[in-house]
Computed example of a mutant assay.
Amino acid sequence: MQARYDRQIATWLIICAAIIVTMILLGGVTRLTRSGLSMVEWKPLMGIIPPLSEEAWLEVFEKYKQFPEYQKINKGMSLFQFQEIFMFEYLHRVLGRLIGLLFLVPFLFFYFTGRIKAGLTPKLAGMFVLGGLQGLLGWYMVKSGLVDNPRVSQYRLTAHLGTAVFIYAYILWVAWGLRYPSRTPTASQGLQRYASTLTVLVFLMILSGGLVAGTHAGHAYPTFPLMAGSFFPPGLYATDPMWLAAFEDLTTIQFNHRIFAYLIIVLISVFAVKAFSQVGIQDDAKRGLKLMLTLLVIQVSLGISTLLLHVPVPLAAAHQGGAVLLFTAVLYTTHRMRH
Results as ranks from 00 to 15, higher is better:
Q2Y: 14
D6I: 10
A10I: 12
I14D: 04
I14A: 05
A18M: 14
I20L: 15
V21M: 10
G27V: 10
V29Q: 12
T33V: 14
S35N: 09
G36F: 02
G36R: 06
L37C: 02
L37G: 00
V40G: 00
V40D: 00
E41F: 13
I49H: 00
P51K: 01
E54V: 07
W57S: 00
W57F: 02
L58M: 05
E59H: 14
F61Y: 14
K63Y: 06
K65D: 09
K65L: 11
Q66G: 05
E69M: 08
Q71G: 10
K72T: 11
I73A: 08
K75V: 14
G76Q: 09
M77W: 10
S78T: 14
Q81M: 12
H92Y: 02
L95Q: 02
L95F: 13
L95C: 02
I99R: 00
L102N: 05
V105N: 06
F107H: 03
F107S: 02
F109M: 13
F112Q: 09
T113I: 15
R115V: 13
R115P: 11
K123I: 14
G132L: 14
W139P: 06
W139C: 08
W139M: 05
Y140V: 10
V142Q: 07
S144M: 06
S144T: 15
S144W: 07
G145P: 04
G145T: 10
L146I: 09
N149P: 02
P150Y: 04
P150V: 04
V152N: 03
S153N: 07
H160R: 12
H160G: 12
A169P: 00
I171N: 05
L172S: 04
L172F: 11
A175E: 05
L178Y: 07
R183M: 10
P185L: 11
P185Q: 11
P185G: 13
P185T: 12
S188T: 15
G190F: 12
Q192K: 15
R193V: 08
R193T: 08
T197K: 04
L207Q: 10
S208G: 04
G209A: 06
G209H: 01
G214F: 03
T215G: 03
G218Q: 02
H219T: 12
P222H: 09
F224D: 06
L226R: 12
M227K: 02
F231Q: 01
F231D: 00
P234F: 08
L236F: 05
W243Q: 06
L244Q: 11
F247C: 03
F247T: 00
T251S: 11
T252G: 01
T252V: 03
F255T: 00
F260L: 01
A261Y: 04
I265H: 05
L267S: 02
V273G: 07
K274L: 15
D283W: 09
D283I: 08
R287K: 15
L296R: 11
L302E: 09
G303Q: 01
I304S: 03
T306K: 06
L307N: 03
L309N: 13
L315A: 11
A317S: 14
A317D: 08
G321E: 04
L325K: 04
L326D: 03
F327L: 12
A329W: 03
V330R: 11
Y332M: 07
T334N: 15
T334F: 13
H339F: 11
